[in-house]
């Protein structure tokens, strides 16, 4: 009896320690980023690195108001939100069709959607630049909203197809017998049931768009420049304003993390990737 409870306590303790290690492992770089952003230049480049130091908010006021990073954050937000909604709006019906309807070439079509996610942005960036230039759309939010579809739409379709497939068919067959259109079945029956998956795909779209760098570097300049592109542009080999870079990074990362934390319950429910009961 005692042996068993001893063993149990031991395993709880070791589980606790392991969890703690994982926790620290995940959080530490984030912690270091935040603290570096609160150091001035000399402290940030000090050897050995300082754990206790005088906190300064100078980097934040400088990047936000002198370098105008808040505008870039706003751009990022506009672009990420719009492209996320657009992806869901276009992707959900397509996912429903892939999950429910039978037609020739379905498998290939599904794969083609997913393939778009695999194209390296380096291939598309320059052709896209030239096309966009001719359409006089360079440096606009619209361009990034559209090109981000190339990697968001596949994710939405992938995750949502699996979610729709997991919904028992008897539900909508009953509805068909009552004369409901496919559109109604999709909207009123299946979409609400697939909501967690839709939410997860939305979260991913948002994160991917918010974090994107390559297209943003090539296709924007001032008006639509996103925050990651701005953070990288502080990286002139001439100077290492690490405090400023880390302050900008923190400003970029914190909103996504808050957003992802709020939604983290959904994440686990929606990431089953087609493992259905």
């Amino acid at each position: 009896m005692r042996a068993v409870s001893q063993k149990k306590r031991n395993s709880t303790a070791s589980q606790g320690i392991l969890l703690l290690i994982i926790l620290v492992f995940c959080i530490f770089p984030f912690y270091w980023m935040v603290t570096t952003s609160l150091k001035d230049q000399i402290v940030a480049l000090q050897t050995p690195p300082a754990w206790v130091f005088e906190v300064t908010f100078g980097n934040y006021t400088e990047v936000l108001f002198k370098d105008g990073v808040w505008e870039n954050l706003l751009n990022s937000l506009i672009i990420a939100v719009c492209t996320t909604f657009l992806s869901i709006f276009l992707g959900c019906p397509a996912a429903f069709a892939l999950a429910r309807f039978e037609f020739r070439g379905k498998k290939d079509l599904w794969f083609w959607f997913i393939t778009n996610r695999m194209v390296s942005p380096i291939v598309l960036a320059l052709p896209f630049f030239l096309i966009v230039r001719n359409l006089k759309l360079l440096d606009t939010h619209l361009v990034l909203i559209l090109i981000y579809l190339t990697f968001n739409l596949p994710i939405v379709i992938w995750i949502c197809t699996d979610q729709f497939r997991a919904i028992p068919r008897d539900l909508d067959e009953a509805a068909v017998i009552e004369g409901a259109s496919q559109w109604r079945i999709f909207r009123s029956i299946c979409l609400p049931l697939a909501a967690p998956g839709v939410a997860v795909s939305g979260i991913f779209s948002f994160i991917f768009s918010w974090n994107e760098l390559m297209y943003a570097l090539v296709l924007t300049r001032n008006n639509a420049k996103t925050a990651p592109a701005m953070a990288v542009s502080f990286m002139e080999g001439y100077n290492l304003p690490y405090g400023k870079i880390m302050a900008t990074s923190t400003l970029i990362v914190i909103p996504v993390i808050i957003f992802a934390l709020i939604a983290s319950k959904q994440l686990v429910r929606g990431l089953t990737m087609g493992a259905v009961k």
């Binding site: 030239l130 001719n134 570097l217 002139e236 080999g237």
Partner: peptide
């Protein structure tokens, strides 16, 4: 339009190529 040195050439070449 501010750029770090490493991007300045690419940025300008693309701009001139595209008119």
């Amino acid at each position: 339009i501010k750029h770090p040195y490493e991007n300045a050439l690419g940025e300008q070449v693309r701009d001139f190529v595209a008119g």
